[in-house]
Amino acid sequence: MNRKKSVSQRIRLAVQIVFFVLVALVVAAHSLEESGITIPLLQGASLHAICPFGGVVSLYQYITAGTFVQKIHDSSFWLMIIVFVTAILLGPVFCGWACPFGSFQEWIGKIGRKIFKKKYNRMIPLKLDRVLRYLRYLVLVWVVIMTAVSAKLIFSDFDPYYALFNFWTGEVAITGFISLGLVILLSLFVERPFCKYACPYGALLGLSNLFRIFKLRRNSVTCINCKACDKACPMNITVSTVAAVTDHQCISCLICTSEAACPVPSTVEFNTHALEQNTQEVAK
């Protein structure tokens, strides 16, 4: 990855840091507010209130009873809509650029990458990995059904994201801490293990890869088949054989693109139309 190419990932890192710090500050401010301390210019909110997935699990209750699930408020609903807009445009860009827990796993993963080098993120047998990738849909179905039935945030007791940003509050269940510990440990071997195998919101947003307006496309004419894109993909997606990535696991991180891993300009990029058209127009 040359200097120019690393710029795109530095931009992404900056955005990830902004969202991580913002969420941490808002949640910390909320805790302080409950203790009677207010931070100037910063309005605190619970993590549930600023989690777009809260809107998703509240949908059933909102439609049937006109109310939100406990601890969920209008803000979760608006965030759900906002993130859906970004997903329609760019796929699960929220996962790759904004989700603080995705970023956290990625940063832990850098330690794993240093330890295991090329073996990192390639340790789970392919057949097992393929099956496990669908586990998150089972989690999604379970969470949505159980939340609808109980009208409670069932997942929060198991949610490592909630545990990470609330570990000091005494409100985290032991199962939450176990999940968090497990994710941290697995992140040393696998890139974004929670995103890949367990995140219910990632599962839902992943479906947008099938219909996003800007698709991640590969120009088969200019592609030199070096597989740099495949090797770079944190989600282990094979980019080098497809015209457009529709894999439900893509997080729109741009690591595989010509702005980063791909050595050939304008060969892997986000575009609304097939890249071969550009090549043909240039040839003419």
């Binding site: 931009i11 608006w78 860009v93």
Partner: peptide
């Protein structure tokens, strides 16, 4: 084409802008 800069801008503007808009409209309740 969408470059990393455009995506960064889109993510920040749509998400944070959306929140600010909801606040301005008085519908952002946490």
């Amino acid at each position: 084409k969408m470059t990393s800069r455009m995506i960064a801008l889109t993510v920040v503007v749509v998400i944070l802008g959306g929140i600010l808009l909801a606040m301005a409209l008085g519908v952002w309740r946490t």
